[in-house]
Simulated assay, not measured.
Amino acid sequence: MTANAEIDLPFTNGVKRVKLSHPLRWVTGIICIIFLALLFRAFANGQIEWSYVGQFLTAKAILFGFGNTLLMTVLAMALGIALGLLAALMRLSDNPVASTVAGGYIWFFRGTPVYLQLLLWFNLALIFPVMGIPGLWEARTVDIMTPFWAALLGLGVCQGAYTAEVIRAGILSVDAGQVEAAKAIGMRRSQVLHHVVLPQTLRVITPPIGNEVIGMLKHTSLAAVISYHEIMHTASMIYFVNNRVMEMLIVCSIYYLATVTLLSIGQSFLEKRLGRSLSRSSAKVKIEEGVGA
């Protein structure tokens, strides 16, 4: 019996359906299980003091560093989204100056590594020793550009360049005909934005923005190079003292994996919520079109 004859179609009454065998799936599954078992056994019997992992998992220094990691993730993403929205609108503007400035911003900050940008912000005092308004307020740049502000600007400004392209793509994905149709039935510009453009844009950009948030969580570890006290920097300071390198790295891995898991669940929930909102908005527009007709 061929594979086509095994499909259960309405006109195949009386034909016995035969399931195809997939021996390769079983072989692949067994290999994966064996590999995971060996990996688990290697870590369980390796030279890892798991008691140190449990001890430092709730240490005050680690919790403080993890709190700084979350704080920097939230603030840098907020700055990145704000700058990204502004840059996206400027890129879509008919004003050539605004479009060129936004394009230059995106080109520079997407073209240089985050690591490099963090060092540039942190060492800004080498170029501008003093910052402020002459005669009104002045301060030494080295006092202003602390590791916190250097990390926030380095991560947030760079993120804005990537977010700008995500938002711009989301806005361009909305069919222009829908906007014209909404205006034709008498919807104001704010109504078109709220009921037509924004719901569809949010639905399109939510997955990539969610990925950017997860990426930002991990990129905060780069701020250790400028001595920002996030979890990786704190862990390194501890293992320089007790020489428990792998144990401290495992502690950091647990925190990162747990946070990414929660963020992924939240992203999935938000995507479903926005999907329902889009369906309701589309239904409302259809009703208004019917009333207008």
Rank of each mutant, 00 (worst) to 15 (best):
A3M: 08
I7R: 00
N4R: 01
L9V: 09
W26T: 00
K16E: 13
L24F: 14
P10G: 09
V18T: 14
L24D: 12
V27R: 03
A5M: 06
I7T: 03
L20A: 14
I30L: 10
T28H: 06
T2A: 13
N13V: 08
L9D: 11
N4K: 01
L9H: 09
D8S: 08
A5C: 11
C32V: 07
L24H: 15
I33C: 08
N13C: 03
E6G: 03
A5D: 05
I33A: 05
R17G: 00
A5T: 03
T28V: 11
V15G: 11
I31A: 01
T12C: 11
A5S: 07
T2N: 14
I31W: 00
P23M: 06
V18D: 13
L9Q: 04
T2G: 10
W26E: 00
T2M: 13
T2P: 08
E6R: 03
D8W: 03
M1N: 07
N4Y: 00
A3H: 09
A5V: 06
P10I: 05
L24I: 15
N4T: 02
I30A: 07
W26K: 01
R25T: 12
E6H: 05
T12R: 12
G14I: 01
S21C: 11
C32F: 07
K16G: 12
G14Y: 01
V15I: 15
K16W: 08
K19L: 08
W26P: 00
H22N: 15
R17I: 08
T12L: 09
L20S: 15
P23W: 03
L20H: 14
R17C: 04
I30H: 04
V27A: 05
V18P: 03
D8T: 05
F11P: 11
K19H: 15
A5P: 02
L20W: 11
M1S: 07
S21G: 13
N4E: 02
I30Q: 05
I33G: 01
C32R: 02
P10S: 07
C32T: 07
C32Q: 05
M1K: 12
T12S: 12
R25K: 15
P10E: 11
A3Y: 03
M1H: 02
